[in-house]
Design a protein around this nucleic acid. Structure first.
Lengths: 232, 232
DNA sequence: CGATGGTTTGAGATATATCAAACCTCGTGG
DNA sequence: CCACGAGGTTTGATATATCTCAAACCATCG
C-alpha cells in the first residue's frame, strides 16, 4: 500500500488523473516531506530540481529585487502543484507560511513520468491555465487598485481560498471567520504595500465595522457586501 | 495544400508539435483572420469561444475595473497562443496593437483536438508555464518598482521580445532600436502608471542620454548598461 | 517580570496622481 | 500649398496617497 492510498488530496490534486497502477508508479518516485512554518522548499534563481504537490498547509511563492524589496507572486494551498516542470530555473522561492506537508519529486523523474502520462499533463495544464488567470487578475490589483481596495480584495479572496473542501456543513461557502496565514509584513508583500499602510487599512476597515479582528491573525468579515464594495 | 504549409510561425508556434497529417487535420478546424490595429478579438468576461495562434503583429491582453481603470496583463507576439482552452470565460480582452494576423479556432473544436494530441498539449503546457513565469516576474515590477525602474524594465523587455527570430544578421541579440507598438497611454496601462508619469520618465531617460526618441513611437537604446542599472 | 518581535500609531517627506495648458504631428479640406 | 483641427504628447503647478522614520504598544515566552 502506497502513501497515496491515504492521501487527503488524492482526488483533488493532479494525481486525480491517474488510475491505481499509475499512482503506484508515481508514488515510487515521490516522497513526503514536512515543512515547518518559515522553512523554504526552493530558492529564487536556483536550478529547478524539485516539483511537488501540496498536501497540507499554505506556502508562498516570492521574488525580490537586488536591494531587498520583496513581492509575493503566488500563494498555494492543499492540492496545488508547486515547481517548474520542463524548465531550467525557478523564478521564485517557495516558503511555508504555516507548517506544511508536501509530496516532492525530483523534477527530472517527474518530467519523464508526465511525458508518458498525457492525462497527468492535461491536469497540470488545466491547473496552470487557472493559475495564470488568477495571477493576471492579481496584476489589476497591483497596478491599479488603492491600498483600501487591495486589502479588501485580499481578504475576500482569502475567505474563499481557505475553505476546507467538504470539511464543514455548508457547501463551500466563503468563510466568515478565518486565521490569516500571513503576518502583516507578508500581507504587505502580497499587495505591494508597506506594513504600515496595511496596518492602517486593517484598522480603518475595523473602525468602519466592516471586519473584526479578534486577534492579530484572525479576521471576521462582518459585512461582506461592504467589503465587496471596498474591493472596487 | 493547407495554409499551414506557408505559415511563418509553423515551426515556432505550438503547431511545431504536429506532423504533416496532424497539421492538416488541425488546419481543417482553423482559419486565418486579419485584425486592424485597435480591433478586438475577444472581450473581457465574454464566454471563451475562440482560441488562436498569433501569426503576425502584437496584441494586448487587458482587464479593467468597473470605473474604467485599465491594466494590460499580457502582450503577445507572433507564434504565441491566445485564449483560454478548457475554460469557461476569458478574464481579459484581446486587442490588436498593430495590424495583426491570427489563426483562430472554435474553442470547442480546439479542446477536442488537443485532448487527442498529447504532443500539442505538451507544447501548450510549456508555453503556459513560461507565460506564468513572465507574468509573475511582472508582478514584482507592478508591486515593488518605481516609475523609472518600471519604464527601464519595460524598454529592455521590449528590445528582447521584438526581435524577429532568424530575420536579421545577428543571432537574436536584443534590439538597439525599435518601434514601440504602444501609445504612451498603453505603456502606462502596462506599467500601472499615468500617462504623464510615463512621459516624464521617457524625457528623463532621454535627457540622461540613456535612450533617444527619434519619434514618438521609436526608441533607441544608447546605453544598455545604464538602462539595466535603471531597471533595478 | 523583562526581553523580544511583531504591530499599531503618529508626524513628516515624497513619488506619483491630478488638473490644466501648451505643444506637436499628421491628415483633411479649403 | 497652407490653414485648420483633432489626437496624442509633453510640460507645469498642485494635491494626495503612500512611504519613511520614529516611537509607543502589545503579545508571547523564557
Amino acid at each position: 500500500m502506497s502513501a497515496c492510498d491515504t492521501c487527503i488530496v488524492r482526488n483533488r490534486s493532479i494525481c486525480a488523473a491517474l488510475d491505481g497502477e499509475e499512482i503506484k508508479a508515481l508514488s515510487m518516485i515521490g516522497r513526503r516531506r514536512d515543512l515547518a512554518a518559515g522553512e523554504s522548499l526552493m530558492w529564487e534563481g536556483e536550478d529547478s530540481v524539485l516539483v511537488a504537490n501540496v498536501i497540507d498547509g499554505v506556502l508562498k511563492l516570492s521574488t525580490g529585487t537586488e536591494d531587498g524589496r520583496e513581492q509575493i507572486v503566488g500563494v498555494v494551498y492543499p492540492s496545488d502543484f508547486i515547481g517548474r516542470p520542463f524548465g531550467s530555473t525557478s523564478g521564485h522561492g517557495v516558503t511555508a507560511l504555516t507548517d506544511a506537508r508536501v509530496c516532492v519529486f525530483a523534477r527530472r523523474d517527474f518530467d519523464a513520468f508526465a511525458r508518458e502520462h498525457p492525462a497527468l499533463e492535461h491536469k497540470l495544464l488545466e491547473r496552470t491555465l487557472a493559475e495564470l488567470d488568477r495571477t493576471r487578475s492579481w496584476m489589476l490589483l497591483l497596478g491599479r487598485k488603492s491600498a483600501g481596495e487591495k486589502l479588501a480584495t485580499f481578504l475576500l479572496e482569502m475567505s474563499e481560498r481557505l475553505v476546507q473542501p467538504g470539511c464543514h456543513d455548508s457547501p463551500d461557502l466563503p468563510l466568515r471567520q478565518f486565521a490569516l496565514p500571513f503576518s502583516r509584513q507578508q500581507v504587505a508583500d502580497v499587495l505591494g504595500l508597506t506594513i504600515e499602510t496595511v496596518s492602517r487599512q486593517f484598522t480603518r476597515l475595523k473602525a468602519d465595522g466592516i471586519i473584526d479582528l479578534p486577534s492579530r491573525r484572525e479576521v471576521t468579515i462582518l459585512d461582506r457586501e461592504a467589503l465587496q464594495a471596498e474591493a472596487g
